[in-house]
Design a protein around this nucleic acid. Sequence first.
DNA 1: CCACGGATTGGCT
DNA 2: GCCAATCCGTGGA
Length: 205
Amino acid sequence: MTIQINKLKKLPNKFYQREVLKVARELLGKIFIRVYNGKKLAGIIVEVEAYDGSIDRAAHSFGGMTKRTEVMFAEGGLLYVYFTYGVHFCSNVVTGNKGEGTAVLLRGIEPIRNIDVMSINRFNKNNLTEKEKRNLTSGPAKITQAFNVGKEENGTDLTKNKIYILDYENISDSDIVITKRIGITRSVELPWRFYIKDNPYVSKK
DNA sequence: CCACGGATTGGCT
DNA sequence: GCCAATCCGTGGA
């Protein structure tokens, strides 16, 4: 069963310019596209986390706008890419209205198109082992490496043709798991992580 | 299987 | 100077 991505439509700005928890929840099942060397790298979004600077001390936007976080304070519909641990990039979908400082971190993607290109980007080889296949895009920094997303892509407009998200499945509530977020030390109690039940590309149970 | 620690930049206190 | 929205290799059970 090959997904006919050419027949699907981009999510419009209206989709992103809503409440962050709603957008996070509804991004599950949608198809992330990154055009790289003329090829469409594609995968289904299977795990996300919401961040909201107005009440969430784990959000980069908590405490106000800085040079680093200005994209996160823009109007919904841009990509916010940040660098961390001196090694990794992570990507977020900016949501809500201008000045809000809300975004959705992409944590898990199921690859569906141009997997060979992602394999080279991640492991510099093809013919991956089973373990390497599962490790291709099951984590926020694995995604940016596989899809070749870095600081150049910070601020990319998701309604244009470089990086965008296609409308696809609506996942039912019974197939979604909601948990606390991973890897943070503040506001840890907020249940703002969403993932598709039993999907192998979820970063962690 | 799990726990631990190193990598290595740059933002902010 | 401290430490991060992570990943991976190592070493032990």
